[in-house]
Amino acid sequence: MSDGPTTPPSAFAGKLRRLDAVWFYRALFLVAFLGTWQLASGPLLDPFWVSSPSAIGATLVKWTRSGALQYHLLVTFKETATGFVFGAAFGILAAFVIGSSDILRRTVDPFLTAVYGVPKVALAPLFIMWFGIGLAPKIVLAAVSVFFLVLFSTIGGIAQADRKMVDALRIMGAGRFTVHRRVTFPSALPWVFSGLKLGLPYGFVGAVAAEMMASNAGIGFLTQNAAGQLDTAGVFAALFALMVVTAALNEGLGRLEHRIFRWR
């Protein structure tokens, strides 16, 4: 009888080998890229404009020794993380409120889309006017950037919830809350996650952009300050540090996602 469990074929070892190869190629690509840059800087390109990996490395070491890098990174990280948490929480919450009623969703949709279309960075001057030049405007800008991405993604996810699954639950006697908890939320969760993953870098964009306009701390300030001194290596070093943090956080989100969706 064909009524047996379907066990996926275990190709774990082969997968691991492929993964190793991919990591090897990645390292190769990185070395080739940095090597070319290093060699081209000087004979081919003016180091004043393009700097070089070694100069950037030296700046990073200098800043790390003095503690400046950690300080500025932490400021940006705090702004982004706070904004991210607020933006994501409100985004998910708003999506469930809006997504629970078809009429409401269709009513607010054009307005949300209109606001979403505004580049969030353009709101920075407004937030600086409202909230001063401290952490607040950066947090708000990061939050707003994350909010819309998570909101749209989650609303999309809620709309994808299987109607038949909802009906099955209602016939079993489930109320609205149980339907949300057991069907709507879990089926929207992959979309929530893609919203979060998309939102994270935009959160940094928001925070850094606001820093560049008015602040005395953070990665945005650091790049702006280095550029003001015509220190190309400094600009690259600040951007590099930001890149590492963003990549690490994204990787963390990816792992969390993998843990949550083990059923797939």
Partner: peptide, 14 residues
């Protein structure tokens, strides 16, 4: 009533 549909309505995450 109980309704057994043609459609697979098991929740894949449970």
């Amino acid at each position: 009533i109980g309704y057994l549909t043609q459609h697979d309505s098991l929740m894949p995450w449970l």
